[in-house]
Simulated assay, not measured.
Amino acid sequence: MMADPEYEVRRHVVQGEHSISDQPGVMLTTILGSCVAACIRDPKAGVGGMNHFLLPGEGREGGGDIRFGVYAMEVLINALLRAGARRERLEAKLFGGGRLVRGLSDIGEANASFARDFLEKEGIAFLGGSLGGDCARRVQFWPVSGVARQSLLQREQEHVFIKEAGSPAPKQHAGELELF
């Protein structure tokens, strides 16, 4: 396991939000269940960002609703382009899309499928990530370097998911996966 990348500022991204940065000391973080977060960056421009959406597609009104994937993806991509990114250089990692409650529709899978399809249709390189499963997860993303780390939250830790706490994550080794 690699050492923690250095960071000076932690920004927590909650449902319906996005955040971008071109500062090496910034780490973006979120906590996901069935929601999906896209971590997208332009490695040459040195800018990246994260969104967090609740539902796939664009909604009944045809877009503009922060809960839906189309709006969340478009807002993040447009913010990156305004900050100097180029569409043809964008690369993405996707996280979330879990199924935390059995017996209900699998909104997590619908979110994950939407996100993968969106990247393909937009021609954005999909580098991987972690989608599906039955656990909530904490995701940390350093937008300049592109390093992403996920920690799975065990059932007894899911109160953190419900709270979406912004406090620093404890050091965890079980269920931790670092993607680079």
Rank of each mutant, 00 (worst) to 15 (best):
A174H: 12
G16N: 08
A165V: 10
G84V: 06
A79T: 05
V75N: 12
R41G: 03
I40H: 04
Y71T: 15
D117V: 09
S21C: 08
V26I: 13
K93P: 00
R149Q: 14
G63V: 05
H12E: 12
E164P: 00
Q23Y: 01
P56C: 10
A112Y: 04
N78K: 14
R41E: 06
V13K: 01
G98S: 15
A125W: 00
I107D: 09
P143T: 07
S105I: 07
N111M: 10
P143Y: 02
V160P: 00
L152W: 00
G16L: 06
G59I: 07
A112S: 14
N111D: 09
Y7P: 00
K93F: 05
R99K: 15
V139L: 13
L94N: 02
S130R: 14
V139C: 05
A136H: 08
A110M: 14
A45V: 10
P170G: 06
D65G: 05
S34Q: 13
M2I: 12
E156W: 11
Q157M: 11
E88D: 15
P5V: 01
E176Y: 00
Q140G: 09
E156K: 10
G16P: 02
C39A: 15
W142M: 05
K163D: 13
L80H: 02
G103M: 08
L127T: 00
F95W: 07
M1S: 12
H173Y: 05
V13I: 13
V139H: 04
G84K: 08
A38C: 12
I31Y: 09
G49S: 06
E109L: 13
P168M: 07
P170E: 11
F118W: 15
G69D: 06
E122C: 03
G129C: 08
M27P: 00
E61Y: 12
A136M: 11
L94W: 01
L76P: 01
L153E: 07
I124K: 04
A112M: 07
H173T: 11
G108Y: 06
E158S: 08
N51H: 01
G59D: 07
A37N: 07
D134L: 05
G46W: 00
L131K: 11
I124H: 05
P170Y: 01
L76R: 01
V139Q: 05
V36E: 06
R116K: 15
M27K: 15
H159S: 11
A37W: 01
G63P: 06
F161H: 15
L81D: 04
A38W: 00
F68H: 15
E156I: 12
P168D: 11
S167A: 11
L55M: 14
L179D: 02
A3R: 09
F53K: 02
I107L: 14
L81I: 12
F53L: 03
A85Y: 02
L55C: 04
C135Q: 15
F180S: 09
V14E: 12
G49P: 04
R87E: 14
G49V: 03
A165K: 10
G97T: 09
G48R: 00
F68K: 02
A112G: 12
